[in-house]
């Protein structure tokens, strides 16, 4: 019986002479066609993003659970976040994602200049988002709302003294606001870390795009980075309502 290994491979025998081996980054030799390589790349990227969904999903689950257990603490603590800043940041991040999407289009239609500009705009909006986030973190630092030994519950035990229209919490329930802020920093912090990683990659991609790497038919790095960037976007689309919005009416 002939084994498949012993059978001459048609590519190597029949086609080799007439088949000039042109090395294209969008069609490496172990793929049959460019579409197959693109498909394999997208598939791999999606598998990675699914693991990321599980990673963030664990934190979303913790939030769901503790919000149910310590609802009064979560409601009051959540109301200390600034909705205008969160809403502006949502718009900024959506704009960043939009620029990234246009960038993918520019790479597909081989417009190098548009691609470079869009990648720079994506980075720019990403940095604005991180700047606003840093400002919000700083406010929490000044209010002693970062979980740990310097955490202060006084604003939640005696809200009237701070001019906050909330029902005062009992001291033990007020301690549970630390869990809200722990989850707030864990979730937005991991989100921000993903953005920082993304921005580092964007610098590298912008430089390569400027060199012309992605405007001659090889789109995969731009496309797959776009998938990552939109994923980070989606995480925020859930973080914003969960952390900032859904406890706005605890008093009625």
């Amino acid at each position: 019986m002939d084994s498949t290994l012993a059978t001459p491979h048609p590519h190597e025998t029949v086609l080799h002479a007439e088949h000039e081996h042109v090395v294209l980054p969008q069609h490496r030799h172990h793929f049959e066609t460019e579409e197959q390589q693109r498909e394999a790349g997208s598939f791999g990227m999606w598998l990675f993003l699914l693991t990321e969904i599980m990673f963030f999903g664990g934190m979303f689950f913790a939030y769901l659970l503790y919000r149910n257990w310590y609802y009064p603490a979560f409601a009051v603590a959540s109301n200390q976040l600034s909705v205008p800043l969160g809403a502006v940041n949502t718009a900024v991040l959506i704009s960043s994602g939009f620029c990234m999407a246009i960038g993918v289009w520019a790479a597909e239609v081989r417009k190098r200049g548009v691609l470079v500009v869009m990648l720079i705009l994506t980075t720019f909006f990403g940095l604005i988002f991180l700047g606003v986030k840093a400002d919000e973190y700083h406010e929490k630092y000044e209010l002693h709302h970062i979980p740990g030994s310097s955490f202060s519950t006084s604003m939640f035990v005696n809200p009237a003294a701070y001019g906050i229209k909330e029902e005062p919490l009992s001291p033990d329930m007020a301690q549970k606001t630390q869990i809200f802020f722990f989850l707030y920093f864990a979730m937005t912090g991991m989100h921000a870390l993903h953005m920082i990683i993304g921005i580092v990659l964007l610098f590298w991609l912008t430089w390569r795009a400027h060199r012309g790497d992605f405007s001659a038919g090889y789109v995969a790095p731009i496309e797959n980075f776009g998938l990552y960037w939109h994923f980070v976007d989606i995480v925020w689309l859930f973080l914003f309502p969960l952390l900032y919005l859904i406890n706005r009416h605890p008093l009625h």
Binding site: G97, H230, L245
Partner: peptide, 27 residues
């Protein structure tokens, strides 16, 4: 103030936004 409907609406809108990002921005 929509009582129990507040978180439901917020999450429904978040899911809708996520779906159109996945379908179109992410192709």
């Amino acid at each position: 103030d929509l009582k129990w409907a507040n978180p439901v609406i917020a999450l429904a809108i978040a899911c809708f936004k996520a779906v159109i990002v996945i379908l179109f921005f992410m192709h």
